[in-house]
Design a protein around this nucleic acid. Structure first.
Length: 465
RNA sequence: GCACAGGUGGCAGAGUGGUUGAAUGCAUGGGACUGCAAAUCUCAUUCACGAAAGUGACGCAUCAGUUCGAAUCUGAUCCUGUGCUCCA
C-alpha cells in the first residue's frame, strides 16, 4: 500500500513497525461545541483508512483524542457559567452522537488530555532535562532553536519561520519561536499541580503524551487536517523526539479542506455548518458519500447540490443491494451457469480494482468507481431463477467493499403484513388486467413508504427512505 | 514576501507520455423494457457540415517548448486555495 507522507512529500510503500499491526493516531476535536463538517472530514477519511487496514487483515490500534482543556474550553465554560469539565462531558457525548450518525466507528481508545496530566508532566520534565525546555515564572517553554530538526515537517527553515513569528513585547520566552508546554494558572482557570506550580498543559504537548502512551515512542501513522501541519504537528515531533531521542512517526497523513464558496470553512470565519445542522436536512450517509467521492487530500467544495448528487449516487448502491436481495428470494440451489460465472468474475475484477485504488494512497473516488462497475453487473443478471451461489457471491462482495467505506448501512427492511396484503391484492388485479385498481394500490403502497416495481419475475417492493 | 497545493467535459471527480478509450457518479435527451410507471440496460450530450449513419476540426487555465506521440514532461504567464496566527 502506498501512502502520501507529508514529511517526505511523496507516496511511500507502507511498512508497519510490527508485522500485521498498525498504530494510528488522529488528532481529535476540541470539545467546546458541536463539530462541523470540516471537522468531520478527517474523522470520516481516517475511519476509512482504519477500516481498510482491518479489511486487509491488520490489527489496528486507532487512537483519537479529545482536547478537553484549552483557551476555547475555558472561554466557553465562562460564557455558560459552568465548569470546563462540564463542557467537555457534554460535547464528548455530542461527538459520539454525530459520529455514530456518520457511521464513524469509535476509536480503539479516545483519551482525554486532562486524564493524562502525569504523562504530560513526565514528558516536560524529560525535555527540561534534555535542555530542550525551560521554566519561566511558572510557564514552561520549548527551546525551539535547540532542536536541530525543527521545520522538518512543514519544510520551512528557522529564518522563514522567525520572520513570520508574532513577537509579543510582554513574552517571557527566550525566543519568539518558542512555544508553551505548560501554562501557569491564571485566576479562575482550572489547574493541576506540577513541579512548576499550579497550571495546565499547552495544546501541543497533550498529543505527544497521549499518542506515545497508547502507541509507543515511535508509531506508524499520524493523521489530521492540513492546517495542523504547522505548528501543531511540527511541535509534536520536536517534543516527542526531543524527549525520547527516537523517531516519532513514520507516516504523516493530512487531509484537505472543505470549502464554502471556495473559501476554507472554519469556526473562526463563521462560515461553517455543523453536522447537527446538516442532519436536519440530509441523510448523513450522503455526507459520507460526498466526502469519499474525492481524494482525501484534495480540497472539496461543500454545497447543497453536491450533497444531493451524493445522495443520488448512494441510492444507486442501495438499488443494487436490494436487487440482489430480490434475486436471492427466487434463487435456486444449482451451480452458476456461464453468464453467472462471468458475473462472479466481474465481482472479482471489481474487488481487485477496488484494492488497487485503495492501495494507491486511499483513492476512494476510484474505489467507488470499482464498486459501481459491480453495480452494473448486478443489474444485468436475469431476474428469475438465479443461482444461489452466484447471488450470494455478489452480495458478499458488495457488502464487503462498501463496508470498507462505511456505506450501505441502512437495513434492508422487510415488508409489513398490511403492505404485503396490498401487494398480493395488486398481483391479483394485474392478473385480471384491472389497471385502475392496480394503480390505486400502487399509490396506496407508495403512501405507506414503499416503492413498488413490476418486473418479469413479479412485483418488487422497496422501502423508501 | 516566503512555503505548499491546485486549475480536467453541463456538474462533481479519477487519470498523470502511447492503440478515437477523458474512468465513475450526477444531470439532461433518445431508444429498449412496461398496460402505464418506476427501476434497469443502452446510446448521446465541444464545434462545423449533415435528417441520419458519417466526415472534419478543436480539445483537459493560457502561451511556448521537448517528443514519432502530451491532459500527462519542461519553461513562462494568469488565476484560485491553504500555511507562516487559535483552527480538521
Amino acid at each position: 500500500m502506498q501512502l502520501y507522507n507529508s514529511m517526505t512529500r511523496k507516496k511511500e510503500e507502507f511498512k508497519p513497525i510490527h508485522e500485521g499491526k498498525v498504530g494510528i493516531y488522529a488528532c481529535g476535536p476540541t470539545v467546546y461545541n458541536y463539530f462541523h463538517i470540516g471537522n468531520a472530514r478527517p474523522f470520516i477519511v481516517f475511519d476509512v483508512l482504519r477500516r481498510y487496514f482491518e479489511y486487509r487483515g491488520y490489527q489496528v490500534t486507532f487512537v483519537q483524542n479529545f482536547t478537553d482543556i484549552d483557551d476555547k474550553m475555558i472561554r466557553r465554560a465562562a460564557e455558560e457559567n459552568t465548569t470546563v469539565d462540564e463542557i467537555a462531558k457534554r460535547y464528548i457525548a455530542e461527538y459520539y452522537v454525530d459520529a455514530k450518525a456518520l457511521d464513524i466507528r469509535p476509536a480503539t481508545v479516545h483519551p482525554r488530555a486532562t486524564e493524562h496530566i502525569p504523562q504530560i508532566i513526565a514528558l516536560i520534565e524529560k525535555l527540561i532535562a534534555n535542555g530542550l525546555a525551560y521554566e519561566s515564572r511558572g510557564d514552561v517553554y520549548y527551546r525551539v532553536k535547540a532542536f536541530p530538526n525543527y521545520g522538518c515537517l512543514c519544510g520551512q527553515n528557522l529564518e522563514d519561520l522567525e520572520s513570520g513569528a508574532r513577537v509579543n513585547v510582554d513574552e517571557q520566552k527566550e525566543d519568539p519561536l518558542d512555544f508553551a508546554l505548560w501554562k501557569a494558572q491564571k485566576p479562575g482557570e482550572p489547574a493541576w499541580e506540577s513541579p512548576w506550580g499550579m497550571g495546565r498543559p499547552g495544546w501541543h504537548i497533550e498529543c505527544s503524551a497521549m499518542s506515545t502512551t497508547y502507541l509507543g515512542d515511535t508509531f506508524d501513522i499520524h493523521c489530521g487536517g492540513k492546517d495542523l501541519l504547522f505548528p501543531h504537528h511540527e511541535n509534536e515531533i520536536a517534543q516527542t523526539s526531543g524527549a525520547t531521542g527516537k523517531p516519532y512517526v513514520n507516516y504523516w497523513l493530512h487531509n484537505g479542506f472543505i470549502n464554502i464558496d471556495n473559501e476554507k470553512m472554519s469556526k473562526s470565519k463563521g462560515n461553517f455548518f455543523t453536522v447537527r445542522d446538516i442532519a436536519k436536512e440530509f441523510d448523513l450517509e450522503a455526507v459520507r458519500m460526498f466526502m469519499l467521492s474525492a481524494h482525501y487530500r484534495s480540497p472539496i467544495n461543500f454545497s447543497r447540490e453536491m450533497i444531493e448528487q451524493a445522495q443520488s449516487s448512494l441510492e444507486r448502491l442501495y438499488t443494487a443491494r436490494d436487487q440482489l436481495n430480490f434475486l436471492a428470494q427466487g434463487a435456486q440451489k444449482r451451480e452458476p451457469n456461464e453468464a453467472e460465472g462471468a458475473f462472479m468474475a466481474a465481482c472479482d475484477k471489481s474487488e481487485a480494482d477496488f484494492n488497487t485504488a485503495m492501495d494507491d494512497d486511499m483513492n476512494t473516488a476510484d474505489a467507488l468507481a470499482a464498486i459501481f462497475e459491480l453495480v452494473r453487473e448486478v443489474h444485468k443478471l436475469p431476474l428469475s431463477s438465479a443461482s444461489e451461489k452466484a447471488v450470494a457471491y455478489g452480495q458478499q462482495k458488495l457488502s464487503a467493499l462498501t463496508a470498507v467505506l462505511g456505506l450501505l448501512n441502512r437495513k434492508a427492511d422487510g415488508v409489513s403484513q398490511d403492505v404485503q396484503a396490498l401487494v398480493d391484492e395488486r398481483a391479483q388485479a394485474r392478473a385480471n388486467k384491472d389497471w385502475k385498481r392496480s394503480d390505486e394500490l400502487r399509490d396506496q403502497i407508495k403512501a405507506m413508504g414503499y416503492t413498488l416495481e413490476d418486473t418479469s419475475a413479479g412485483q418488487k417492493v422497496r422501502k423508501v427512505v
